[in-house]
Design a protein around this nucleic acid. Structure first.
Length: 480
RNA sequence: GCUCCUGUAGUGUAGUCCGGCCAACCAUCUUGGCCUCUCGAGCCAAAGACCCGGGUUCGAAUCCCGGCGGGAGCACCA
């Protein structure tokens, strides 16, 4: 069988174009405003795969500049990101923080001002935008570099306050691409930073910090989403200014999950005001939340890798991820009965069985059987009880009944080709949490005591769940 | 509006660079059937696509031109 494996690997390999390079050093740069979510996973996994396949090195670079009102740093995010990376089995070799490298940015910021390639602009935000749109230069653009350096020092000294001045790169106010017209390199923010407090008020924007760091840290390949392509040109422009060698760029298209809105800043708000139960709330799609639901990290990797490196924008249903996960867990998960919203019915007729025997896993008889008590009173899900009145259904592995109100008339014991439902005569209280955070109460079979916290099992006819607490039985729904 | 990217079945991909072996790959989805005492898994089968229009060529999903569609950027966010 080895040839099958080889074929598989080759196929996978082709999804990612080969890197034509002797050395590979790449970096992933999460912004610590929350844990990694499924959307961030693409950036992370692609970097990791490229590096692993090319024997390269990977840098974890916390992109923790000061952010904005809408994008707020979150102190806990640093560790949550790390936790997510470890869970995804991403290997990295160095860790850096933008917030620790401010002096470096200042050094090169000053150089670029000395070169006369940048200027301090005191236009207010609105004016700046208008002039950019109209392709008009402002009066600050042409002032002598001595004046610029003077103002720069004032910025650093805190003599100019937030919003009153920025440093802009002198590209071309007439550039055909309005997005590329004299972009901002530094701006002032008086906000407190979770790691360096109030030590700095002048902060670089990502285009500048990346231009410097990607060179200084010796990146060979830069992987980024299509939404950041303009940063390529910004970096190249700055590298040319300094006469630096250029790494290679790789891009991937935008990935959306159908009917899912992934916004970390929005999630941050909702976690803060308790609308979400925390960062492992399934609605955040964080690695932490996926882990709770019993999604395997390998499933996420497979899911992401299937999209390859195409620059096409895609929208996929979450069920695609579930399909990958099911492949991994179906053979592992033992089967049990869970009756959500149970209704008790009385069986009418002779009980011919004392116990019902059902295999723990239908495809693996070696795992043996679980036994269920058969008594005159059995509980079935309210949904089925409602939907199948005056119909014959089969209590799986037990008997066939004709449902009439709160009675079930036993019509036989032989396996028949009719609807089979789960049932219980007794059991334990079970709570099942769904991805929308609603919790369904019901009873689960007594055999659940053979499971333990962290196990992934299947509630028959319901779906795969992960056991979060086994004393007061609490499980988290993964998917069907 | 301007700039850049992108357009293969419902969805996601392979093929596009270096035109013919593409009446187009694989997965998933859907529909039948088999199997199974789960609405899970497995097996078999079917259905389903090269955005449109020109051009080049013996021959175009692949090259050229023009449309049209989708996305992103035009933040003192990342």
């Amino acid at each position: 069988m080895p040839e099958f494996f080889e074929e598989d690997e080759e196929e996978e390999e082709e999804r990612l174009p080969r890197l034509d390079a002797d050395e590979v050093k790449m970096r992933m740069a999460p912004y610590p405003s929350g844990p990694l979510h499924i959307g961030n996973a693409r950036m992370v996994i692609l970097n990791d795969e490229y590096v692993k396949r090319n024997d390269g090195e990977l840098v974890l670079f916390y992109d923790d500049t000061i952010g904005s009102e809408t994008k707020q740093l979150l102190p806990d995010a640093y560790d949550m990101i790390k936790e997510g990376l470890e869970w995804l089995d991403v290997e990295w070799h160095e860790t850096h923080y933008k917030s620790e490298r401010m002096e470096t940015y200042y050094e090169y910021g000053k150089k670029i001002l000395e070169m006369g390639e940048a200027y301090v602009c005191e236009c207010d935000q609105k004016t700046l935008q208008e002039k950019r749109r109209d392709g008009k230069e402002c009066e600050h653009r042409d002032r002598p570099k001595e004046k610029n350096l003077e103002l720069w020092e004032m910025m650093l000294e805190g003599e100019i306050s937030e919003g009153e001045a920025v440093v802009r790169l002198k590209t071309d106010m007439d550039h055909p691409d309005p997005a590329f017209r004299d972009r901002v390199l530094f701006r002032i923010s008086e906000k407190e930073h979770p790691r360096v407090g109030n030590e700095y008020t002048v902060w670089p924007l990502l285009e500048f910090s990346w231009a410097i760091d990607d060179h200084l840290l010796g990146m060979t390949h830069i992987l980024r989403g299509k939404d950041l392509v303009i940063e390529d040109r910004m970096e190249e422009y700055i590298w040319d200014l300094f006469g630096w060698e250029k790494p290679e760029f790789l891009h991937y298209g935008m990935l959306r999950l159908e009917n899912v809105n992934l916004s970390k800043s929005e999630f941050q708000q909702k976690v803060k005001n308790d609308e979400f139960k925390g960062w492992d709330d399934p609605r955040t799609w964080s690695m932490q939340s996926l882990k709770r639901r019993g999604i395997q990290p390998e499933a996420i990797r497979d899911f992401i890798l299937e999209f390859g490196m195409s620059e096409t924008d895609i929208e996929v249903p979450p069920s695609k991820l579930y399909a990958k996960n099911r492949e991994l867990i179906d053979s592992e998960a033992n089967r049990y009965f869970f009756i959500p919203d149970p209704v008790g019915i009385e069986l009418v007729g002779d009980l011919e069985m004392e116990k019902a025997k059902i295999s723990r896993h239908p495809s693996d008889p070696d795992r043996g059987y679980r036994e269920l008590d058969t008594k005159k009173t059995v509980f079935i899900p309210r949904k089925e009880w409602n939907q199948h009145q005056n119909e014959e259904v089969r209590l799986k592995n037990f008997c066939n009944i004709q449902l009439e109100g709160k009675e079930g008339k036993i019509t036989g014991y032989e396996n028949k080709d009719i609807l089979k439902i789960q049932w219980l005569s007794d059991g334990i209280d079970v709570q099942l949490e769904y991805p929308d955070m609603s919790v369904k109460e019901g009873i689960g079979e007594n055999n659940l005591d053979e499971t333990k916290k962290g196990d992934i099992i299947q509630f028959e006819r319901i779906g795969f769940v992960k056991i979060e607490k086994s004393d007061t039985f609490y499980a988290v729904y993964g998917h069907r």
